[in-house]
C-alpha cells in the first residue's frame, strides 16, 4: 500500500515538472515565432534603431529605440538610487545594527517586498508625481525620474536581502584576522567584508535590476508614457513593458502591430536573460568559495 502511494506521488510530481517545462517551452516558442515573423517582415535593424514608435501612422513606424532608451533610463536611475541605499542597508543590518533594530529592519524589508507593484504605482502617482512637478518646477511630474524612484523601492528588497546574506556569510575568521592586525571595524568592513561579499552583492544588484526591467504596472502609471527619446530624466518616457501592456488590447491578432509587441517581448526577454545569467554567474562564484 505504502509503495503504491509512493509511486502515485512520484508520478504526480513528475507530471507537474514536465508540465511546467512544457509551458515554458510553449511560451518561448510563441514569443520566438511571432517575434521572428516580425523581424522578417520589418527588419531587425530598423526595429531596434528606429527613432519613432508610431503604430497608427501611415506607414506605421515600429522603431523601439525610444522604448529602449526609456527602459534603460528608468532602470539605470533606479539602480543609482537603490544600489547604494540597498547595500548600505544590508551592511547596517548585518554588521552594525543591534539585534532588536536588525529584526525590525529585516521584517520591514520583507514587508516592502510584499507590496504589490500597482499599490506602489498608485501611491507614487498621488504623492511622488505632484511633488516632483512642484519641486523641480516642470510641466508634469510623470517623468523617468519619478519612475526610477518608484522602481528603486521595488528593487531594494531584493538587493538588501541577497546582499545581507552575502555579507553575513563572510567567515568570522577573516574579520578576526583583520581585527588582530589593528584594523578598526569600519576598515575591516570596507577592505575585507565588502571585498569577500562582492560576488554576492553583484548578484543581488543584477537580480534587483532584473526585477526592475520587467516591471510594468508602476512604470506605466508614473512615467508619462511618451514614446519619444527624452533629453533628460525630467521628461516623460515610455518603457518596453508599458508599451506591450498598454497596446496589446488595441491590436488585431496577427497584424504587424501585434507581432511588433511580441518582438518587443523577445528583446525584453533577451535582456532579462542576460541580466539573470550574469547574476547566476556571480551567485555561483559567491557560493563555491
Amino acid at each position: 500500500m505504502r509503495k503504491i502511494i509512493d509511486t502515485v506521488i512520484e508520478t504526480v510530481i513528475f507530471i507537474c515538472a514536465i508540465l511546467s517545462i512544457i509551458f515554458v517551452v510553449l511560451i518561448f516558442g510563441f514569443l520566438f515565432k511571432e517575434g521572428f515573423a516580425f523581424f522578417k517582415d520589418f527588419g531587425i535593424t530598423k526595429f531596434i534603431t528606429g527613432k519613432f514608435w508610431n503604430p497608427s501612422s501611415n506607414p506605421a513606424l515600429f522603431g523601439i529605440l525610444p522604448l529602449i532608451v526609456g527602459s534603460t533610463l528608468v532602470t539605470v536611475g533606479a539602480c543609482v538610487i537603490a544600489v547604494p541605499i540597498g547595500v548600505m542597508t544590508a551592511l547596517y543590518i548585518s554588521e552594525i545594527a543591534p539585534k532588536g533594530i536588525r529584526d525590525i529592519l529585516k521584517s520591514l524589508v520583507e514587508l516592502m517586498a510584499a507590496i504589490p507593484s500597482v499599490v506602489i504605482g498608485f501611491v507614487g502617482m498621488i504623492t511622488l508625481v505632484p511633488f516632483v512637478r512642484i519641486f523641480f518646477n516642470i510641466p508634469t511630474g510623470l517623468t523617468a525620474f519619478s519612475g526610477s524612484i518608484m522602481l528603486a523601492f521595488m528593487a531594494m528588497p531584493t538587493i538588501v536581502t541577497i546582499s545581507e546574506d552575502a555579507i553575513r556569510s563572510v567567515p568570522w575568521h577573516y574579520k578576526e584576522g583583520a581585527f588582530a592586525l589593528g584594523a578598526t571595524k569600519w576598515q575591516t568592513i570596507r577592505r575585507i567584508v565588502l571585498k569577500a561579499a562582492m560576488p554576492g552583492i553583484i548578484a543581488a544588484i543584477m537580480l534587483g535590476i532584473g526585477r526592475v526591467i520587467g516591471e510594468t504596472m508602476a512604470v506605466m502609471m508614473i512615467t508619462g508614457n511618451a514614446a519619444h527619446i527624452p533629453d533628460s530624466i525630467f521628461e516623460p518616457v515610455r518603457t518596453m513593458t508599458a508599451t506591450i501592456a498598454a497596446e496589446m488590447g488595441e491590436t488585431v491578432r496577427g497584424d504587424m502591430h501585434y507581432k511588433a509587441l511580441f518582438a518587443i517581448g523577445l528583446v525584453l526577454f533577451v535582456i532579462t536573460f542576460i541580466v539573470n545569467f550574469i547574476a547566476d554567474l556571480f551567485l555561483g562564484k559567491s557560493k563555491n568559495k
Binding site: 575568521h173 577573516y174 578576526e176 584576522g177 571585498k195 568559495k289
Partner: peptide, 10 residues
C-alpha cells in the same frame, strides 16, 4: 597567528 591559516580573500 591563528590555528587555521586565515589569509584574506585578496
Amino acid at each position: 597567528v591563528f590555528q587555521r591559516p586565515n589569509p584574506f580573500p585578496i
